[in-house]
């Protein structure tokens, strides 16, 4: 039980267990791990509040019906699982800003709010454009030896490294 209360595990152990979880998910749910479709559906559910017509006529939401499904539950589960893990290790606390950002960029919350909103918008558009995210392409699609997933994952990191260096310098 002591192991569960450790703040951080070896990345190799975590990778091994995520791999095993992915296999279980493929066997049991016939779906690989992936988070971005969950956000797509949650966004669609919110949009439906403002206008049902928009959703019904939209080609993309016709293909991906916005409703609470497996992928949405997965995202909710991730929040709960991370909460549980951080509570067990005493690592949970409400923090407004990541320490690296407040140390090296700015300690203003409004600025971080604006930056994270802009970052989130690019992330959301990019994930749907590429057809997946760091888990759907980066772990699952690559393991399934999809050429598209390998190219997407490499592009995620090239783009990410470039924008990290733009913010923090070399």
């Amino acid at each position: 039980m002591d192991y569960l209360s450790l703040k951080q595990w070896s990345p190799y152990i975590v990778g091994l267990l995520i791999g095993l979880l992915n296999i279980v998910s493929l066997l049991l749910s016939k779906k690989p791990l992936g988070a971005s479709t969950g956000f797509l559906k949650i966004g669609g559910i919110f949009l439906r509040v403002f206008g049902k017509k928009e959703i019904e006529l939209n080609e993309y939401y016709k293909k991906n019906t916005p409703k609470v499904d497996w992928g949405v539950m997965l995202v909710i589960g991730v929040v709960l699982g991370a909460f549980l893990s951080s509570k067990l290790s005493g690592d949970f606390s409400i923090r407004a800003l990541p320490s690296m950002w407040s140390r090296e960029v700015s300690s203003s919350f409004p600025l971080r709010f604006i930056a994270s909103t802009i970052g989130g918008i690019f992330l959301g558009i990019g994930a749907r454009w590429a057809g997946g995210c760091t888990s759907g392409h980066g772990i699952s699609g690559t393991s399934m030896l999809s050429v598209i997933s390998w190219i997407a994952t490499i592009s995620f990191f090239i783009g990410g490294i470039l924008s990290a260096f733009l913010i923090y310098g070399i």
């Binding site: 994930a127 090239i158 490294i161």
Partner: peptide
């Protein structure tokens, strides 16, 4: 799609510092 979408995603990844799962 993978290259264009991937680079847009990456740009957001570096600004936000999280991806959809994390």
């Amino acid at each position: 799609n993978a290259v264009i979408g991937g680079l847009l995603f990456g740009l957001g990844f570096g600004i936000l510092g999280y991806c959809p799962g994390t």
